[in-house]
Write a protein that binds this DNA or RNA. Structure first.
Lengths: 340, 340
DNA sequence: TGTCCAGTTTAAATCGATTGAAAGTGGTGT
DNA sequence: ACACCACTTTCAATCGATTTAAACTGGACA
């Protein structure tokens, strides 16, 4: 423990490659080649390798990150741009990414746009400045336009967008099967016996929303279920309010006021499901006694609130892992792979 | 826009200090001195400064982060260690930190320990390796022992712990007035007319918990309120289960089974408040009709769940900002300030 | 005329690594 | 004895900045 801590001390002058070279009796070049397992190390005698590795280990040598990056033009970092760190939808994805990268020598550099599109530009610049080798963008439904990401992608930086349906083929996307999710939501309510179902859909411009809606219609058609158009509404496009809570609360009130009959509501996501529940409650109606409500995402608190929220699960952690994996794959083969 | 984007292109060889020097007709030294406003720049002619700045601006010069850090031994980064990114308690604090640092040239490097103490060691090493100039640790109540942080602090790295009461004077802490919080919670319930109040306190070893408890007792004494010892329980110490939800749910069940009379419950934090509500609900009891419950923290969802959770607010965002500010202050005066 | 100084600017070393080209071995074949 | 080869190791340039000490330029003064 004592020695372990000692390595961290800032006071002591850093241990450099030359120190290891001197101690092991070889030149800095050889040491570098061995420790990096550079291609050239094929030519280094086995005994030499052993001795060098042993010495490095014994002295507790850690290469200087900055010197290395300067020379090699590689940062060993992956930029992670998240639209809103406080959004529980995003944090689980982040943890997935972190978990995956932890096994590698890549460090995620997390930047939080704080829901302000202006910050996105700034942070993307910072990422490039810091020579990230790949970019994962974690988008919630408030995501700005993604043209910036296309720019990055053009620059031969591997890029993945996770959490939101992408509409351009230039960028890889990681998302759940939204169509199937919509289908499943309807199926669940149908099996509970509901036949008159209201829907709080996402913003019209959001592809995710359209796909979920398509899934719902598909189920309805299959079951010869007629959907009442008066009970289908979209949340407003990228609202400034920032929250789908208020939006869905208002829509629910509209549904109730319309006098149209219904017994269940499908919400676009978990937060809007909470909005629905709030609106119902304010009208003296209870969930699940009077109405059934179903959300989408399965954010962590969904299971903790009472009654616990019924929701279509998105495997957020796994999505994060998968996104990170995509980047790692792009980085593997030979770094010029995607230049073509 | 086009030119702005152009600056980002990776393809084009980076623009270096020498390029600016050549274009402006001065030497790299002078350019460096001017652009950094180094002490020596007092001696540079005003016209020269102007010309250099103009040229740098025109060409869109951005210094290379790695070269700069290598030479100057400064990284312009602040390490942010968070115990659990998925904990809503932590994320708001993080945003506060980010918000504050955004105004400066420091970049937060966020590392998520994922609730695993083992990772803490690893990440602290990474931070030092990356030469962070300060460390902010965002602790939730599951925080491991903080001896590691003391090590850092010994190494003359400014260190702040936010979100949890610290017991050692070696480390600066940023936290809410827990004692006053406990007092306020009791006061609130008292004013609602409650006289028999149960408490789900935090783990006994946690200083925060003790202080809140002290605040509650103080109010009780002042009001000559007798607290029933059978209705005061602590959550288990740093449980492996990881969640205070289950713990407080069980304690609430114990309270109910004990047959002791009570009409309100103070919970240690918001998550445990949800545990209380769940337990009550499972016994056919409703909040707020049958029982009053109060939490602590004011995590974002507290306002969204129905009924919305009554809670003692911690100004998480502001705490984050303040913590970042502490670090910035330590960094200002002259970097040797805290060496003494 | 030569010296000195204040006011500016720059040369050159340095930070700590990576890397392509070159050099040093010793053994073979002729 | 010479050239040649395979096998190892090292030289020296380089990445792009910062920083110390030194150099340059005119004018003032003796």
């Amino acid at each position: 423990m004592a020695t372990k801590t000692k390595r961290l001390r800032l006071g002591a002058r850093r241990l450099t490659l030359s120190d290891v070279a001197r101690a092991s009796g070889f030149s800095p070049s050889t040491v570098s080649i061995v420790l990096n397992e550079a291609p050239h190390s094929r030519f280094v005698a086995a005994g030499t390798k052993l001795k060098i590795r042993e010495t490095a280990e014994r002295l507790g040598y850690r290469p200087d990150v900055f010197a290395r990056s300067l020379r090699s033009r590689k940062s060993a970092t992956i930029g992670v741009l998240v639209m809103d760190l406080a959004d529980p939808f995003c944090t689980l994805i982040l943890q997935g990414i972190e978990q995956k990268l932890r096994e590698t020598s890549y460090l995620p550099i997390i930047m939080d746009a704080h829901n302000e599109p202006g910050q996105v530009q700034r942070y993307v610049e910072m990422m490039i400045e810091r020579r990230v080798e790949g970019v994962v963008t974690v988008a919630n439904w408030l995501m700005f336009d993604i043209s910036l990401l296309e720019d990055i992608s053009d620059d031969q930086l591997p890029t993945v967008l996770v959490g939101r349906e992408v509409e351009t083929p230039a960028i890889r996307g990681v998302m759940v099967n939204n169509e199937a999710g919509g289908y499943a939501a309807m199926e669940h309510l149908y099996e509970l016996g509901h036949r008159e179902i209201a829907m709080v859909c996402g913003p019209r411009r959001l592809a995710d929303s359209r796909l979920r809606w398509r899934g719902m219609r598909r189920f309805a058609q299959k079951m010869k279920l007629k959907l009442n158009p008066a009970l289908v509404r979209n949340l407003p496009d990228i609202s400034e309010s920032g929250s789908s809570f208020e939006g869905s609360r208002e829509l629910t009130n509209l549904f109730l006021q319309s006098g149209e009959p219904f017994t269940a509501i499908v919400a676009f996501d978990d937060i809007s499901a909470y909005g629905v529940i709030r609106a119902l409650s304010e009208n003296g109606l209870q969930v699940p006694q009077d109405y059934s409500v179903i959300g989408f995402d399965d954010i962590p608190v969904a299971a903790l609130s009472t009654p616990s929220l019924t929701t279509i699960r998105q495997p957020l952690l796994e999505m994060g892992e998968y996104a990170a994996d995509c980047i790692l794959q792009s980085l593997k083969p030979g770094e010029e792979a995607e230049q073509g």
